[in-house]
Design a protein around this nucleic acid. Structure first.
Lengths: 342, 342
DNA sequence: TAGGGCCTGGACAACGTTGTCAACGCAGGG
DNA sequence: CCCTGCGTTGACAACGTTGTCCAGGCCCTA
């Protein structure tokens, strides 16, 4: 009677290992490893026997063990803000494609715009020993990543710069885009223009506001504090901000929205008004063409792709000084931004 | 002079291990493990010394080794079709939230609607020994997952059923939704209704077409083959299909779109027409409210959440027979579906 | 004061894989 | 015929962690 070797309870289900395959094929453990990894130096006949055993047992290599041994996980981590945001879907997908081209898997997590959660996630990924990390910062202090980066985890920041550390960054030209958008409104005759943006903690929000101010200044237009509103992108908040700047004795005649979520709410809000208000939004959104919404488009996929390519170049040994890459934006006139002041 | 121990080249960067921490703190290896894992049975004083050493060395536990030892990876895999599709973003996010609540990370990959790539991805995730797998099928034969499932990798299929194996599935009611949508058009007087759907390989496409036919039959309306078009969701293809069914001696007076991408193209196409054509689309899309598009809405987040919850119940030991869960859809009238026949 | 139990800490093996190295068999040449 | 060299194969250690088990010290009680 065959002796039943007792397996530890924690064994993965009851998966065969290379040892089991080796036993069945009547070869050594290392030979199985060679076959599995397609290494040279195995007789066709031996290889066939091993393959049969693999097939028969349903063996699949345990990558955890492989990773432990080799020191590379062939995976990269992506910490973003919210995967459900249509801006980040294409970005994430682009990163995934680049990773795939390099044979790596993508682990991603959402920070929900919470700095603590960002840190928790990023460090969890480091504990997994991802080879590299792409981070869309929620927080403003990333010194917690310094030991990890020193220890060899390549890190690239996207969409917003890293805080208080020196690292690769890939950004859209928020300042320039906003400036161009607001200048466009000014060119169409507007003098009183509102700005609704994201929370001031967020770099892009600040940059876009800066672009707005620059455009106004370029045209020698004064900015009334009542026209500017930074804060959460909650519809409720945005509606209130709009209501405020569109009422009163001297309402704005045009509105510039600081990101896609603000745009969605703003467009809904403006649709209900009788007096037309000109509008330009940062970020293109689906069907904006049909609605005739003028936007400053940024290329989310290009951001992701560029960041991922930089990351893999680092993993391939590139050892430059950290660089800041800025991608351009495009003004797409579709009607809403070309409405003259009432 | 201190002897420099030579480290293997493959060591993660040059990360300290528990052994290093133990040496520095002057305690045993296992004691460090206890502290790191918050296990009981360590004197406050010892714990402090260990914590200091961890801090000083910048130690972070190597989860690869942990995983190898424990047999659980605390990660789940999600194979979807395209993360850049706005339908899958929220779904993925919902899965992530559930995973997070269970302390697990999410690895996801896009199949790009390619069965081979789906398989490649799913098996790569199995090799990583994810604890569980959520799959949005691209292919129609999932027997390749049988050994994995037997070996203990819990698997749940979402959005589309598994092919040729028995497994948990979470679906939207494609048949019922399409039937209701088409019945809605019929109720508004339409007799000639077109259907444009996804490729017939895809289960939801077939189900929705079935719903369309059922509604027509319910109303005792014959269906002309020229009104029905299944195929890729490429804008070009959709445009041609629409042009075909909207021309000729007996054009359709209403169109039902089988998914969100078809809807986007169809809406663009219809917007350019002078004679109004009634329209209902499967899947809600952003700003559809402003465009007045009547849709059959399904809840992507609920799909993801339900599937993930089922998965984790399995991981917690649930051992039922595989179940099929069907989530309802909602008809949202917004105007385009209530246009009478021309 | 002796004995027993509890608490803390450490030695050791094991998880499944890969790198290193040496052994073996066989063919060809001196 | 023996030696050399090459190509194939396997034994063994190591990767960094956790589970098991035991030793030693302490306190409490009889």
């Amino acid at each position: 009677m065959a002796e039943t070797t007792r397996r530890p309870a924690h064994r993965y289900g009851n998966r065969p290992t290379m040892k089991d395959v080796a036993a069945r094929a009547g070869v050594g453990l290392k030979t199985v490893s060679r076959v599995v990894n397609g290494e040279a130096g195995v007789t066709p006949d031996t290889e066939r026997r091993v393959q049969e055993a693999i097939e028969a047992l349903g063996f699949r290599r345990n990558d955890s063990a492989r990773v432990l041994r080799k020191g590379r996980t062939a995976s990269v981590g992506l910490v973003l803000e919210d995967l459900a945001d249509p801006f980040y879907g294409p970005l994430s997908r682009a990163v995934e494609e680049v990773a795939r081209a390099h044979g790596a898997l993508l682990i991603n997590g959402s920070s929900a715009e919470d700095p603590d959660r960002e840190q928790e996630l990023a460090l969890a990924l480091c504990a997994r020993r991802v080879d590299g990390l792409i981070v869309i910062p929620a927080g403003t202090d990333h010194r917690y990543l310094e030991p990890e980066m020193r220890a060899g985890i390549a890190t690239v920041f996207v969409d917003r710069p890293a805080g208080r550390i020196d690292a690769d960054v890939v950004l859209s030209d928020s300042f320039g885009g906003a400036r161009a958008g607001v200048a466009h409104l000014i060119a169409h005759g507007h003098r009183r223009i509102g700005f609704i943006g994201d929370q001031p903690r967020i770099h892009t929000a600040v940059e876009r506001l800066r672009g707005y101010r620059a455009a106004m200044e370029d045209a020698e237009l004064a900015v009334d504090d009542a026209w500017v509103s930074l804060g959460s992108t909650e519809p409720q908040r945005v509606r209130e901000a709009m209501a405020a700047m569109l009422s009163g004795p001297d309402p704005v005649t045009a509105v510039f929205a600081g990101n896609n979520r603000v745009t969605v709410t703003a467009v809904r809000e403006l649709a209900g008004r009788e007096r037309p208000v000109a509008f330009v939004g940062f970020d293109d959104i689906e069907l904006a063409d049909l609605l005739g919404i003028t936007v400053i488009a940024q290329d989310a996929a290009a951001l992701g792709r560029t960041a991922a390519e930089r990351l893999f170049r680092r993993l391939d040994g590139l050892d430059d000084a950290p660089a800041r890459t800025v991608l351009g934006t495009a003004l797409i006139p579709r009607g809403s931004g070309e409405i003259p002041p009432a």
